[in-house]
Computed example of a mutant assay.
Amino acid sequence: MRNVFKVTLIAVGLLFAGQVSRAQSKIGYVDFQGLIGQMPEAKAIKPQIDAYQKQFVDQLTAMNNELQTKGKAYQDQGKTMTDAVRATKQTELQDLQKRMQDYQTDAQQKVEAKSNELVKPLADKATAAVKEVAKAKNIAYVIDSSRGNPLLVSGPADDLTADVKAKLGIK
Rank of each mutant, 00 (worst) to 15 (best):
M39Y: 05
A51D: 09
K167L: 10
Q109M: 09
I49F: 09
I170E: 10
S146T: 15
Y141D: 03
N3Y: 15
K46H: 05
A62D: 08
I45C: 09
S145C: 07
Y52E: 11
S21M: 11
A140P: 01
I49Q: 05
K72L: 03
Q90N: 13
A84T: 12
N65M: 07
K120G: 02
T127D: 05
F32M: 13
D31H: 10
A126W: 03
G169T: 09
E92W: 04
D158I: 01
I139W: 08
A166P: 00
Y29F: 14
Q109L: 02
V142F: 04
V4A: 11
V85P: 00
A129V: 06
N64K: 14
K137T: 03
I143Y: 12
A107Q: 11
E117R: 03
D124V: 08
Q104F: 08
Q108F: 04
T80Q: 13
E66Q: 15
S25Q: 15
K54R: 13
V153W: 11
G148V: 02
V12N: 05
L14P: 00
F56P: 05
S115Y: 05
Q24D: 06
Y74G: 09
M39W: 05
D158M: 12
N149D: 10
Q75F: 07
G148A: 06
K110W: 01
N64E: 14
A87L: 10
K43R: 12
I49D: 03
Q19F: 14
V111C: 04
M63N: 11
L60S: 13
K98L: 10
V130F: 04
A11W: 05
K26R: 13
D31A: 08
P47Q: 07
K54D: 04
L15S: 13
V30F: 02
D76P: 00
G78T: 09
E92T: 07
Q75W: 07
M39K: 07
A128K: 15
R2Q: 08
Q97Y: 06
I49A: 11
S115T: 13
G148F: 09
A134R: 04
D163T: 01
L14S: 00
D58E: 14
V57D: 12
V4G: 00
I49E: 02
